[in-house]
Amino acid sequence: MRARPVAASLAVLGYIIMIVPILFVVVTAFSAGRTLRFPPQGFSLTWFEAAVTYDPFMESLVSSLYLAAGATVLALLLGVPATIAIHRGKIPGKGLIEGLFLSPLIVPELVVGLALYQQLMIGLGLDNLSTLLLGHTALLLPYAVRVTGASLALADPAVEEAARGLGAGPVRAFLTVTLPLLRPGLFSAALLGFVTSFNNVPLSLLLQDREFRTLPVTMLDYVQQSYNPRIAAMATLILAATVVVAVIAERTVGFARIFGGINQ
């Protein structure tokens, strides 16, 4: 392979910019001191214990996981059939429909949140949880449509035709041939969607109430009030969980296949 000094340096610089701040957080989490400070004072796991025994964190973590899972499932249930219709169907205005599904990427989330707040909660009188779920679902639709769309665009339409020719009706051909081909795309869309919902602050900030709070917003509230390593410990735990998920994804499906839908 040819040496590319500029590209290599940029890559290293990129890694440094991304990873170093995270390292500071991780190191601080093991502090024995009482404030968020670098270098940390001493070494202890006290703050991890403090994080996992702190009810607001744990309750909101469960809420966040439920919300992310629910929104991901809903977004896939809506987005995947829409994608198939857009790519394979004979419907007029395909571009417009796809644009509509992708629009949550472009419209600022605060605007979406405010609109949902006005229309669904004030207008229709929907409760916080439903509105939040709908909001997150809308937020994840672009991923469901775009990522599964990318793997659908790569799949040879003749494969489904071949199944039809061999005697499979449209539904069976979809279930036995098209769906298995879309699996990496679906996995990828689910992963991206879940993480996006889990990390979301603006929508959750606007739409949640006291009973149902998501973890990022709870953590945001926490830092505004107390400046101790508990927050760093919680962040480190999330980071660790993310790494585990990433490793599992790499081992089972492989990043090349998950994100191949976009790059290849």
Partner: peptide, 20 residues
């Protein structure tokens, strides 16, 4: 008649094998 009711065999230019 839809393709599944015709009982014909087709070989596609791309072969269109089921990769899975």
């Amino acid at each position: 008649l839809p393709p599944e009711k015709r009982g014909l065999g087709m070989v596609f230019q791309s072969y269109a094998l089921f990769p899975h």
